[in-house]
């Protein structure tokens, strides 16, 4: 979820004043797992992520809802530590490179020009419960 106010457009032709974008990503990675005795494991992999994005773009008094999808590519690297026999603490670094096509007109030109850049690094921390 990202929400922002545009203080200064780097391109004078742009008219965006505020944006609010939410996205859902479905990542799929394949890689290698490096088990470290009974401590946990370290893993690295590459893969794809499918994004569904939506939100609102404001241009002064005018507001427009947007929706878009994109397929991205990237990597993951992380560690998992055994906490109990079925529970693990994990932290991972994920990078995905993804952009949507042109979805909305934000300049004086008649065409749709705005794309959403979903590229970025994410760090995630959490617990994993192993069912099997």
């Amino acid at each position: 979820m990202t929400d922002g106010r545009v203080l200064e457009n780097s391109d004078a032709a742009e008219t965006i004043t505020r944006y609010s974008i939410t996205y859902t990503g479905v990542p799929l990675f394949a890689g290698l797992n490096f088990p470290v005795q009974d401590i946990g494991e370290f893993y690295m992999g590459g893969g794809v992520e499918y994004f569904l994005a939506g939100g609102t773009i404001s241009m002064g008094a005018q507001q427009k809802d947007i929706s878009a999808m994109a397929l991205g590519y990237g990597f993951i690297a992380g560690v998992q530590l055994n906490v109990t026999s079925k529970t693990r603490l994990y932290m991972e670094w994920e990078y995905i490179d993804a952009r949507t096509g042109a979805i909305m007109q934000t300049t004086a030109a008649a065409w749709d020009n705005l794309y959403i850049d979903l590229t970025g690094h994410r760090i995630m921390v959490g617990f994993m419960y192993y069912v099997i």
Binding site: V36, I39, G40, F42, A77, G78, V79, L81, L89, M91, E92, W93, I123, V125
Partner: peptide, 17 residues
């Protein structure tokens, strides 16, 4: 703040942000 994967005393791999 990160988490470490300890191997031996003062031998670690870690990840954080």
């Amino acid at each position: 703040i990160g988490i470490i994967m300890p191997l031996r005393k003062r031998t670690y791999f870690y990840i954080g942000g």
